[in-house]
């Protein structure tokens, strides 16, 4: 197993290796739901929940089922199927027992199935050979990084809406350029605490 310190994993997954701004994962949802602060909050709460669950479940699945049976080549199929059925299960569970939470997060749950950040975390955890504790720290750090980026960005975007812009730059053009500046500022955190 890997012997990187837990604090190191946590901080680097939030800031230095921010999943959206530095690793380009989960961009579709990042641009899709960041136009309002409220929807950004809902999406990131759902991501936090599912990402942790998915990372832990796929960790167990990989080390206790796929590796012992020598089936690691089925990794891609198994992970995507497990994550999508997990999301369905969570949705049913919430609908029945936590209707309040379901009302707030429900719409974002099906969207998460095709959010590549979730699947990527499952793959990366296996790639980096993290232990279970490291996996939990990594996935929650990554989800916090996602939340941070998406919330900051949605606040900026509410201002952009009001800016006078040439027709062609409206919409996605300016949004990309803005995220370039945000990504630049996150790059300034390289070397933070020596990570």
């Amino acid at each position: 197993m890997n012997n990187i310190s837990l604090l190191g994993i946590f901080i680097s997954s939030i800031f230095v290796n921010n999943i959206i701004l530095m690793k380009f994962l989960g961009l579709c949802s990042f641009f899709g739901v960041s136009n309002k602060l409220s929807s950004a909050l809902g999406m990131s709460a759902a991501v936090f929940f599912v990402m942790n669950l998915a990372a832990v479940v796929s960790w167990f699945l990989y080390y206790f089922v796929l590796l012992p049976l020598n089936l690691e080549f089925l990794k891609i199929i198994v992970f995507i199927l497990i994550i999508s059925s997990l999301v369905q299960l969570v949705e049913l569970f919430m609908k029945k027992f936590l209707p309040g939470l379901f009302k707030a997060l429900g719409i974002y749950l099906p969207l998460i199935t095709t959010n590549c950040a979730i699947l990527a975390v499952a793959f990366l955890v296996v790639d980096y050979q993290y232990s279970l504790l490291q996996t939990i720290v990594f996935s929650s750090g990554t989800a916090i990084g996602y939340t941070l980026a998406i919330i900051l960005f949605s606040s900026i975007r509410e201002r952009i809406e009001l800016a006078p812009l040439p027709n062609a730059a409206k919409g996605y053009g300016i949004v990309f350029v803005t995220s370039a500046l945000m990504s630049l500022s996150f790059m300034g955190l390289i070397g933070l605490f020596g990570f």
Binding site: F24, A168, Y172, F176, V177, S183
Partner: peptide, 24 residues
């Protein structure tokens, strides 16, 4: 900077803006 993450966003933003301009 262009091969680093910020450059990726910047280049993509410019390409998308140009595409939209041509499309318009």
């Amino acid at each position: 900077i262009m091969v680093l993450p910020p450059g990726g966003f910047l280049a993509a933003g410019v390409v998308i803006t140009i595409t939209k301009y041509i499309e318009n």
